[in-house]
């Protein structure tokens, strides 16, 4: 049985614009991944609990209206829950100076508007593979 990356696509914070997250979720499915999808406005604690229960490899956070500013809180919470190895990517509107802060906080990559869906899928696939080999060293 081949292994399929398991990805959580979600939104934290206050904004609810979900066009981007829905398109990305559907594309990752079409790229052969298993995508857990949630409505917007997830609490950080709920995202951590979900990531743990579903044992996801990668979390994709969509942020269009400054909610990326609380992603460092999510990274902290994941580490506190023993999920430091889970890959996190952020997609949406993120100013340059904030991008650096997110990468410093442990986010694997930030995808900006206009990113190709195929690029996102390829990155997620690689990231999931890296996460798994970190979890289960050969």
């Amino acid at each position: 049985m081949s292994l399929r990356p398991k990805v959580l696509v979600t939104k934290i914070g206050l904004d609810g614009h979900d066009r981007g997250s829905r398109i990305v979720a559907a594309h990752l499915r079409d790229a052969g991944m298993e995508v857990v999808y949630t409505p917007p406005w997830q609490e950080i604690a709920a995202v951590v609990k979900l990531a743990q229960e579903e044992d996801v490899d990668v979390i994709g956070i969509s942020s269009l209206a400054t909610d990326h500013l609380i992603v460092p809180r999510l990274m902290h919470a994941l580490r506190d829950a023993g999920l430091a190895e889970v890959g996190v990517i952020v997609g949406g509107i993120v100013p340059d100076e904030d991008e650096r802060a997110l990468l410093d906080a442990g986010v694997a990559r930030v995808f900006h508007p206009g990113s190709s869906l195929d690029d996102i899928a390829a990155f997620v696939r690689d990231l999931a593979a890296r996460v798994r080999s970190a979890r289960f060293p050969a």
Binding site: R4, G32, E34, V36, Y37, T38, E53, E54
Partner: peptide
């Protein structure tokens, strides 16, 4: 594609956050 969108948690997002609840989506 063999992929899946597991959307069952959409309707459960409020209750699933409770401590005594464990939800697992399966493709």
């Amino acid at each position: 594609s063999g992929g899946a969108v597991l959307g069952d948690r959409i309707r459960m997002s409020e209750v699933a956050a409770a401590e005594g609840v464990f939800v697992r989506s399966v493709a």
